[in-house]
Design a protein around this nucleic acid. Structure first.
Length: 458
RNA sequence: GGCGCGGUGGCAGAGUGGUGAUGCAGCGGACUGCAAAUCCGUAUAUGUGGGUUCGAUUCCCACCCGUGCCUCCA
């Protein structure tokens, strides 16, 4: 079965075919590194991580590029406000981003280009656009001339007139046309800047992605991803810059956009105080539960992110890890169950895939034949691998660190369990229940099974 | 104002032109010293009004409600 993806360019689901057989190029807009990643930033990372895993499963060669925007006015503002040097802000934030995304089981991209290391490519691209009459210099800025491109607005399906009519922002006086946008802007002495034919300055936001995508994936590549909000203006402008500077060659063939998320029913915003950083949430929930929550709704649907949903996701993972824990044999390499693969190949239908994972877990719990159990466990693990979940040791999942003293705890817990076992043996159930209560108060849940008593953290 | 998206059981959330997945929560059972986990069974839903059709939750129209974007926010 082929992979189907909803292409924003055509607004319909299409069969995916790589430009070059067997090779796939994927570009996703990465973070501007001025602050910790919030849960809204994490959604595209997790969604496109599943796409990346799926593509790797289906094609021998995948090149995933996700940039780091390390020059931007927000970074400059942040540094100015806090007094922290810009380099320190971007380095520190980039490191935190890597840690947080790793905690969500997101694989690192193959290439993670930084804007500041592609200034030369941007300057070259801007120069070409000026030479061709697609851009002009005005008042120290270089602007892209939107009227110079006949089919500007293809992706967002907006005409230039509509854009102007709906504009809420005051038009800068140096623009020839209200829709024109900045490619290069002048930098004053205390701002980061690079020499250019148009004076010392820094790039506009959109040109960064155009230059980095071309550098690492070529003029035309397969899939470009990002959040819904980037369709306009960011991706529209990326297309304009790239197509015009590449002699009309299309930028990406498939455009994939994830939907937005709200938090507890409201738009996430700092003023509402519902601004969850991934870092904060990781203090409360396992990264895997956060990841599963983000995959719980189809990627193009809006998602209302709540603590209740996180608890449910944690519960689902408990159920699956429990099924894995109760089956000891598994083949080292198993095929991804057909239903799970088919769900993901149908425009990344993760909720449906999750439904099939539940079915696998139920079947595994019911199975008694060792060969059947091994087969199902292998399938569950393979499905989990494609979704980026269920890859840790089940015992570690249930008993894993609740704090620094976790290992000391374990010995003490085992000791109490042993004492309870003695009490039960001598039918002293009052004492047995007292011990269990003691453990419950510590957040430890006991499970008496045919093979003895196991424990987990609540 | 322009463009777009969505409204499915208590909650979350899929699919589908022909008696509506899955998980959680609920209820009943099995198992258990009691629990937990697990398994089995079970009740409850397609915003409103039209249209097309033998038949619509699915297609079309209107309305209501919610929501996103409209120059640097994933």
């Amino acid at each position: 079965m082929p992979l189907d993806l909803f292409n924003t360019l055509t607004r319909r689901k299409e069969h995916f075919e790589p430009l070059v057989a067997g090779k796939v190029g994927l570009y996703v807009c990465g973070p501007t590194v001025y602050d910790y990643a919030h849960i809204g930033n994490a959604r595209p990372v997790v969604v496109f991580d599943v796409l990346y895993r799926l593509l790797k499963h289906l094609y021998p060669e995948v090149r995933y590029v996700r940039n780091i925007t390390d020059v931007d006015d927000k970074i400059i503002d942040r540094a100015r406000l806090s007094g922290e040097p810009i380099d320190s802000v971007t380095t520190r934030t980039t490191d935190a981003y890597h840690q947080d995304m790793a905690a969500l089981n997101a694989l690192p991209p193959d290439i993670e280009p930084r804007a500041t290391r592609h200034i030369a490519q941007m300057v070259r691209m801007i120069g070409k656009l000026i030479d061709q009459g697609n851009a002009y210099e005005a008042d120290g800025h270089v602007l892209f001339s939107v009227p110079s491109m006949a089919d500007y607005g293809m992706l967002s399906r907006r005409s230039r007139d509509e854009l102007i009519a709906g504009a809420r922002v005051e038009v800068a006086p140096y623009k020839r046309d209200p829709a024109d946008f900045v490619l290069w802007k002048p930098s004053v002495d205390d701002c980061p800047g690079w020499p250019s034919p148009w004076g010392r300055g820094r790039p506009g936001w959109h040109i960064e992605c155009s230059a980095m995508a071309a550098e690492h994936l070529g003029e035309t590549f397969d899939i470009h991803g990002g959040g819904l909000d980037l369709i306009f203006p960011h991706h529209e402008n990326e297309i304009a810059q790239s197509v015009c500077s590449h002699g009309g060659a299309p930028l990406a063939r498939y455009w994939v956009h994830n939907g937005f998320l709200t938090v507890e029913g409201e738009k996430m915003s700092k003023s509402l105080g519902n601004f969850f950083t991934v870092r904060d949430l990781l203090g409360e929930f396992p990264g895997e539960a956060i990841r599963l929550t983000l995959l719980g709704a189809h990627y193009r649907q809006p998602l209302d992110f709540t603590r209740d949903l996180l608890r449910q996701s944690k519960g689902n993972l408990d159920r699956w890890y429990n099924a894995l824990r109760c089956a000891d044999e598994a083949p080292s390499k198993a095929d991804v169950p057909f239903e799970v693969l088919a769900a993901l190949e149908d425009d990344l239908n993760t909720p449906m895939a999750i439904g099939h994972v539940h079915a696998l877990a139920t079947a595994l719990n019911k199975a008694t034949d060792p060969a059947e159990k091994a087969r199902l466990k292998g399938g569950l693990l393979a499905a989990g691998c494609l979704l980026g979940i269920l890859q840790q040791d089940p015992v570690a999942w249930f008993q894993g660190e609740a704090g620094d003293a976790a290992t000391d705890d374990a010995a003490m817990i085992e000791d109490l369990i042993e004492r309870r076992k003695e009490a039960r043996k001598s039918k002293n159930f009052a004492e047995a229940d007292r011990i269990r209560k003691e453990l419950t108060d510590m957040g430890i849940v006991l499970e008496d099974g045919p093979g003895g008593t196991t424990w987990k953290r609540a």
